[in-house]
Amino acid sequence: MAGPTTVDLELDCRGMLCPVPVIHLGKRYAEVPVGGLIGVVATDVAARTDVPAWCRMRGQEYVGEDAAPDGTPRYLVRRLR
């Protein structure tokens, strides 16, 4: 992804192990309005598979991956419903 993306909600899940990042996502995604963008910043490698899988299972859109300023992977989710 080119350039930093502005998100409506960023979840700092650094240091958390699976399934905790996805639990945070599941609990808090509704804080953004439909159409809003959520960033999940996670060091856990399972998040790379599990965030897109969550989107597919929950009918949300997985937008892609970029990185937080410190280089930690950030997974972008758009709330569709």
């Binding site: 699976c18 399934p19 996805v22 490698v45 399972a46 790379r48 598979t49 599990d50 897109p52 899988a53 969550w54 299972m57």
Partner: peptide, 14 residues
């Protein structure tokens, strides 16, 4: 590290 199989399939690993 999660299961390589589940990862390669793109399904939930937890």
């Amino acid at each position: 590290t999660p299961s390589r199989v589940l990862e390669a399939m793109g399904v939930l690993t937890h």
